[in-house]
């Protein structure tokens, strides 16, 4: 779906540079991009859909070279949900806002009407709302509805849950995960929240200073504390707790797993204590 081949990039003011970066994301993957501020996460996400273009090397989105394909063309393949929905929303009603992307991408009118109605239903929105005075969570949902209405094959999420509360976050992420599983939409998510990454992503790319420090299945990366430390990333709580006990909780990642493992250990512990008494 996305292929980076020896990509280098730098901003004119010298901020965040990327050097000779190569990786490949398969169709249907759910990939998280993690790293400290300034590691190059946002830059990479913007290189994927032509908002930025490599200085050297090539980025291919579904086989299309981003260097020679207009962004408006790439937008049909890749939907992008920004951290701040207010930069996206520019229409006076939710209905028009959701229809906007489809309209600029040249969808037929009857298809647009159909998709807008479906999106309002899915995301529990009212078509005649004035988007600007809705809550942050609702605005993010409006933005996501607009992006997903175009049925992108790739969804890029740039810290999608900042400013959202837990319920709104779960709601948005669960929907995306469902699309990922059922419709095989490829997801690339930039996030600081390791709990979120652990719950939703399948593969993690760890970045630091524009370089790829690590790339692997989420379970492997979450337990690689030296790697996370090197990338200045705060590990998720439960894997980090599990690590403190060496190999004892090697396969523990979630609260549930930890709880059950402790109960199991406890059971054995009680047995051991009992035998000692005998």
């Amino acid at each position: 779906m996305i292929r980076f081949e020896h990509v280098s990039f730098g901003y004119p003011n010298g901020e965040t540079t990327i050097e000779d970066l190569s990786f490949h994301i398969q169709k249907g993957d759910f990939v998280a991009l993690i790293g400290a501020n300034g590691a190059g996460k946002s830059t990479i996400s913007r290189l994927c859909n032509g908002l930025l273009r490599p200085l050297s090397g090539r980025v291919y989105l579904d086989g299309q070279d981003t260097l020679i394909t207009p962004t408006s063309q790439l937008a049909k393949k890749a939907g992008f949900l920004f951290q701040n929905p207010d930069r996206q929303i520019c229409e006076n009603t939710v209905e028009a806002e959701i229809a906007f992307s489809m309209k600029v991408q040249g969808w037929p009118a009857d298809k647009i009407r159909e998709r807008v109605a479906a999106a309002l239903e899915t995301f529990d929105l009212q078509g005649d709302w004035f988007p600007f005075n809705r809550s942050r969570g609702e605005r993010q949902r409006i933005a996501l509805a607009g992006v997903l209405a175009c049925e992108p094959e790739l969804l890029i999420l740039d810290e999608p849950t900042t400013g959202l509360d837990y319920l709104e976050c779960i709601r948005i992420m669960d929907h995306i995960k469902m699309l990922n599983l059922e419709k095989k939409i490829t997801v690339l998510m930039v996030s600081h929240d390791m709990e979120l990454v652990q719950d939703y992503a399948g593969r993690v790319l760890v970045l630091s200073g524009g370089k790829l420090l690590g790339d692997g299945p989420v379970k492997e990366i979450m337990k690689n504390e030296p790697l996370l430390r090197q990338a200045r990333v705060l590990p998720a709580q439960i894997p980090s707790l599990a690590l403190a006990f060496g190999d004892r909780f090697a396969d523990v990642f979630t609260i549930r797993e930890m709880y059950e493992a402790i109960c199991r250990e406890k059971g054995r512990g009680i047995c051991r204590a009992g035998r000692e008494k005998e």
Partner: peptide, 22 residues
């Protein structure tokens, strides 16, 4: 959780362990 606020995972773990009596 019903208020829409998540608690730290370790807090939930201690809560579960307390519930089960260990």
């Amino acid at each position: 959780k019903t208020l829409g606020i998540n608690v730290p995972p370790v807090a939930e773990l201690s809560y579960l362990l307390r519930q089960s009596g260990v």
